[in-house]
């Protein structure tokens, strides 16, 4: 009787081992031949939009143009520092995504850029203080209205300044999406609000892996 039970257990173990090995083999095969393009939502491919030169001023007072977009993946967000809800949330989520990239060499390939659509109030020093609060490594861009428009018009950003209230404060409606540019300054994807770190991380990884086959 005991013999029969023992035999049954051994057979079951053998069965489990076999299945374990089969899964192992299957998995390793998968790793080596990951060539099928993943389904990536909102990938602007094969027709990405090339960004032409523009001229803006960063939070340190230096000129920032299209050449500064080369060789890095850029996440662009358009907002203003007096923005009460959406801008702090988006910058917080972008910072969670950015700080969540654990490998330093991966993180060095990514830059997050906050572009003000309220440059009259958002002076260079105000932008610097604002971004230092969220993530000092983020880039803040401002300048004159014309300089701001030299970039917003290319990407298709809408913004509407409201009339000032009694306390001179005013609100600005603005595009809430985040725009991803590849290292050749081409607009390759758009992330719509509400933003999540998961979405930034997973879609960015998918797009980067997919496009690396085309470089």
């Amino acid at each position: 009787m005991i013999k029969k039970r023992t035999l049954k257990s051994l057979l079951l173990f053998a069965g489990l081992l076999f299945i374990g090995a089969a899964i192992g083999l299957f998995t390793s095969r998968f790793y080596s031949t990951a060539d099928a393009p993943p389904e990536i939502s909102r990938l602007l491919w094969p027709n990405p939009k090339n960004i032409a030169d523009f001229s803006m001023i960063d939070q340190d007072g230096d000129r920032f143009g299209v050449q500064n977009l080369n060789d890095k993946w850029s996440f662009l967000f358009f907002g203003y520092t007096y923005c009460p809800d959406v801008c702090p949330i988006t910058l917080t989520v972008l910072d969670q995504f950015y700080s969540g990239i654990t490998r330093a060499e991966d993180r060095e390939q990514v830059q997050v850029i906050f572009v003000t659509i309220d440059p009259e109030r958002d002076t260079t020093s105000r932008l610097k203080e604002y971004l230092d609060f969220f993530e000092p490594e983020f880039i803040g861009l401002g300048g004159s209205i014309e300089q701001v428009n030299s970039l917003t018009e290319q990407i298709g950003i809408t913004y509407l300044h409201h009339l000032p209230q009694a306390d001179d404060n005013y609100l600005v409606d603005h595009t809430s999406s985040v725009f991803l540019l590849d290292p050749q300054a081409r607009l390759v994807s758009i992330f719509s609000a509400p933003h999540t770190t998961d979405e930034f991380a997973s879609r960015f990884t998918d797009i980067r892996d997919f496009l690396s086959n085309y470089q």
Binding site: G100, I101, D106, T196, T197, D198, T205
Partner: peptide
């Protein structure tokens, strides 16, 4: 949710 490592995803 908090960020996941791209690799983990």
């Amino acid at each position: 949710k908090t960020p996941d490592e791209p690799q983990t995803n």
